[in-house]
Design a protein around this nucleic acid. Sequence first.
DNA 1: CTAGGATCTGACATCAGTGTCAGGGGAAAC
DNA 2: GTTTCCCCTGACACTGATGTCAGATCCTAG
Lengths: 125, 125
Amino acid sequence: MRIGELASRAGVSVRSLRYYEQQGLLTSTRSTSGQRHYTDNEIERVAFIQRLFDAGLSSRTIADLLPCVESPSEGTSDAAFERMQQERDRLTRHIADLTDTRDSLDGLLAANRAHRETLPAAAGR
Amino acid sequence: MRIGELASRAGVSVRSLRYYEQQGLLTSTRSTSGQRHYTDNEIERVAFIQRLFDAGLSSRTIADLLPCVESPSEGTSDAAFERMQQERDRLTRHIADLTDTRDSLDGLLAANRAHRETLPAAAGR
DNA sequence: CTAGGATCTGACATCAGTGTCAGGGGAAAC
DNA sequence: GTTTCCCCTGACACTGATGTCAGATCCTAG
């Protein structure tokens, strides 16, 4: 498929796909006229890349990890493996932080809710 | 205390504190010479602002929410209350996404680990 | 064959929080 | 009082993923 189709199927912009390729996250075969062509495999790959971006990884970090993802059967480098563990741990900490923050919001919401019930006339201002 | 002390006690840069004030997230009393002065309360406030930033809220959103935080005893506006619930829900979804992503990484790590054990000689390359 | 949509490259814009520098004044320690 | 550190404002830089535009080329439907 060409880039437009991959973009719509993976739910990202054409611009982003070109950027991913430039950053070494994605490869494409080129037709003689220079147009990029992809296989269905790339759909999942792009989706995964997006998830890593959403998880706060930089394109550089993702580039470091992807070899480990693509060919877990080969002996991937220790460095990539370590990096992956490191990111996993970072993610765990981040999730814990976010959970704490959400709990704080819940506490505030509860306090506000309680107040609203006792003073319904004040609601809205 | 002056801005430098607040910065070091709250663990943020002086630059950031001035920015927060500019965005309406923080207020300070000014000495006659124009220097900002803060009370101990601001330490916690700044820490909370940081947590919200880390949770992906924009300064605009934080500004919308803070009245609700500072004076839960007053009848805070419905809009702020709704906004807060909305952000809480967004955070919940984000946490779920991150957890999924982390699980994916765990799966990949396990696959790599398994391979490493079967082919110890290939480690490092 | 041709028109219109898709793609190519390259460049510049955006956003938001933060870093950093310059030039001038304040505060506190010696 | 002088030195040294802190603070003030204002401005510009940065980062990184993405948007957008321009001008050229390609592909496909009519």
